[in-house]
């Protein structure tokens, strides 16, 4: 049983670490603030979720398990809410997503290539 818990902890902690590093790379390499917000949100959702789940399986007693659950819950709620507020502030401030132009251009190109038949 303990071995099984250890194995599951290993797996979830590694998945969480992977997501954290991926999100870090995303924060560095993504082109604009919206896409970076996506990367930042990944730390809160997948990274924190997996790591806290892995820790929860190793919790020695109930108080610690409860604290872990609370920490995860508040982290998830508050951090994602502040990223949401940030993205909305950016939007109101009039910053356009860089990728939106690319999508528009792609659609225009596609329409040029194959005009709708009807």
């Amino acid at each position: 049983m303990a071995l099984l818990l250890d194995i599951v902890s290993w797996i979830t902690l590694m998945i969480g670490s992977f997501f954290c590093i991926t999100a870090g790379v995303g924060l560095l390499r993504m082109p604009d603030v919206y896409t970076r917000a996506h990367a930042g949100g990944m730390i809160d959702s997948m990274g924190a979720g997996m790591i806290f789940f892995g820790l929860l399986l190793q919790a020695p007693d109930y108080l610690i398990a409860i604290k872990l659950v609370f920490t995860f819950f508040f982290l998830l709620v508050t951090s994602l809410a502040s990223i949401h507020a940030l993205a909305q502030t950016v939007n109101v401030a009039g910053v356009n997503p860089k990728l939106a132009n690319i999508v528009n251009r792609l659609e225009k190109n596609r329409q040029k290539e194959s005009p709708p038949s009807n």
């Binding site: 609370f70 508040f74 809410a81 949401h84 507020a85």
Partner: peptide, 25 residues
């Protein structure tokens, strides 16, 4: 405020809910 007031009201909904959830804890 810089944004239109209506928009500001709509936008604060998420923050308000989260704050209501968080303040008591």
């Amino acid at each position: 405020p810089t944004g239109a007031p209506k928009e500001s009201m709509r936008k604060k909904v998420v923050l308000k809910e989260v704050a209501d959830l968080v303040i008591a804890p």
